[in-house]
Amino acid sequence: MLNLHALSKSFGALNVLSNLDLSVPQGEVLGIIGPNGAGKTTLFNLIAGVQTPSSGEILFEGKDLSRTKVWDRCRLGIARTYQVPKPFTNMSVFENVLAAGLHGGGQKMRDAAERAEEVLETVELAHRKNTPAGDLSLLDLKRLELAKALGSNPRMLLLDEIAGGLTDAECDSLLQIIGGVRDRGTTIVWIEHVIHALRRLADRIAVLHGGNIIVSGSPDEVLQNAHVKQVYLGVEG
């Protein structure tokens, strides 16, 4: 579904990603881990279209996205959440999701409104639908990030540290929701530091280090890998 070929991104002399190759098949939940500064968020910014690659190509369902703007990528079916939630603070929770359906989903007002209500039920935020988004707690902001991404009815979801900063109970609640999204066949690429969350839901984990993927495999394989333990978990073999 998503194919990255020789993807590189530099900021001046700093090479954040270099010749990265990655394929994500339809329906997979791919976890991406790596130390801070490994290039994880840059990778998402390139896939989502916020930044342009220095070289390489991004193919989504066979289509080259090199010249595709961020809003058009969303319309093609790629939706993302942000590590630090980006709610539309002066709009209600319902309107936040409605906007995603109207624009990313290309729906008419009535259909987008129905979709927004469904999504808010899914993420367990329906009881706060008339609340201004700026008044939400962290957990609810994370739910809203997810709801906004789902509002456009995406085929691929990019989750950026969505479980970060949550208590175990809050994280568990969010994982149930993400599990539901996975069960409906949505492909998920998920950057996360909360390893037990990935262990629970990811089909595969890729480890990003120094701008490239050093290991990729099942969660158990990857987390037992000596090199991964050394560069990411900071423990010797």
């Binding site: 916020v50 939706a79 942000y82 624009h103």
Partner: peptide
């Protein structure tokens, strides 16, 4: 609705299409 989203967060508005 899109303009109002832009008012609150331009990058976020682009990301939802």
């Amino acid at each position: 609705v899109g303009l109002t989203a832009m008012r609150d967060d331009e990058e976020g508005a682009g990301a939802i299409g």
